Computed example of a mutant assay.
Amino acid sequence: MRVSSSSRPAPSGRAPAAEPVRGRRRLREFVELPYTLHGRDPCFVPPLRGDCRRLLDRRRNPFFAYGDVELFTVRRGGRVAGRVAAVDNPRHNDVHGARDGFFGQFACADDPSVARELLDAAGRWLRGRGLRTMLGPVNFTTNEECGVLVDGFGTPPSVMMPYNPAYYPGLLESCGLAKAKDLWAWEGGHGAPGERLARIARHAERSHQLTVRSLDPGDFHADMMRVKHVFDRAWQGNWGFTPMTDAEFTAVAGRLRAVMEPGLVQLAEVAGEPVAVALALPDLNQALPAARGRLTRFGLPIGLVRLSLAARRIDRVRGVLFGVVPHLSGRGIETALFARGQEAVRAAGYDGGMEHGWTLEDNSAVNRYLESAGCTHSKTYRIYGRDL
Rank of each mutant, 00 (worst) to 15 (best):
S5E: 03
A17L: 12
P20E: 11
L33G: 13
G39E: 03
R40C: 11
P42I: 00
V45G: 00
P46K: 01
P47L: 00
D51V: 01
L56I: 03
F63T: 06
V74M: 06
R79G: 13
V84R: 02
V87W: 01
N93A: 13
N93T: 04
R99N: 13
D100A: 14
D100Y: 07
F103W: 12
Q105A: 12
A109K: 02
D111S: 07
D120L: 03
R124M: 01
R129P: 11
M134T: 06
M134E: 15
P137E: 11
S158W: 05
L171K: 06
C175Y: 06
L177K: 03
L177A: 11
A180S: 12
A180H: 09
E187N: 02
G189H: 05
H190L: 01
G191C: 10
A201T: 13
E205A: 14
T211C: 07
V212Y: 00
A222V: 03
R226L: 07
K228W: 04
R233L: 13
T242C: 09
R257E: 15
V259Q: 07
A268W: 11
P274G: 14
V275P: 04
A276Y: 08
L288Y: 10
V305F: 14
L309K: 09
A310L: 07
V317I: 11
R318G: 05
H327L: 04
S329D: 07
G330H: 08
G332S: 09
E355T: 01
W358V: 00
V366F: 04
R368I: 07
L370A: 11
L370F: 14
A373L: 04
H377C: 09
